[in-house]
């Protein structure tokens, strides 16, 4: 009896039968899918925001859809974008999971010297403590003149790496701050 089931091997016969006529019946169309899913297009009426992908340097256009509460509900290619024309690779197509992801860092965390755990802290506290650290390290390591007596005005004791992950304006602002603090060890992804 089992040999009588429709199997992969008999598929073409089935379609052949349809081509030959409707003698078998039962192969017609029925309910529309809209009736079974009873679901509207989930992005209908959603707010659209254009963005540019954060991964490689092609610069593909992305449209992010957010619902009435401002939550990201969809992210897909921007068809108007002349480079990507709506396309996204595996990474770009995953953008939604950057926004909607329980692993995201959501708190300011502090790890004290010799501690084995993170502690949640407030922005204000963290920024003030970092600022105090900066001042302490800067003042302690600042070199106004080198051995030859030339003015160098640099902070030898602080280094920075980062970041191509920031926007242009943020990069510029960061560079400005670091140079004002006297850092010379300023590096980022472009070097590696």
């Amino acid at each position: 009896m089992t040999s009588m089931k429709i199997t992969r091997r008999t598929f073409l016969k089935v379609s052949g039968a349809t081509a030959a006529g409707t003698i078998m019946g039962g192969l017609g169309f029925d309910l529309s899918p809209a009736e079974v899913y009873a679901q509207e297009l989930r992005i209908k009426g959603a707010k659209e925001t254009t963005s540019i992908c954060c991964y490689c340097s092609v610069g593909c256009g992305i449209i992010v859809h957010t619902d009435a509460k401002g939550k990201v509900i969809n992210a897909e290619g921007d068809p108007d974008h002349p480079i990507s024309e709506g396309a996204l690779c595996a990474k770009g197509a995953s953008s939604y999971q950057i926004a909607v992801n329980p692993h995201r860092l959501q708190k300011v965390l502090y790890r004290a010297p010799y501690s084995s755990t993170w502690k949640e802290v407030k922005w204000e506290w963290a920024l003030e403590k970092i600022a105090a650290n900066i001042k302490k390290s800067r003042d302690a390591s600042f070199m106004e003149k080198n051995a030859a007596g030339q003015v160098v005005n640099r902070t030898n004791g602080i280094a920075s790496v980062g970041s191509a992950a920031m926007d242009n304006e943020e990069c510029w602002l960061y560079s400005k701050m670091l140079r004002a603090l006297g850092l010379i060890y300023v590096e980022h992804q472009a070097r590696i």
Binding site: M4, R8, R9, T10, L12, K13
Partner: peptide, 20 residues
Amino acid sequence: ADNTIGITRKMALKRLFQPL
């Protein structure tokens, strides 16, 4: 899709299949 069975045989199988 595998298309190794001749049309005649498939049609025969098909006819058998429906009532069963």
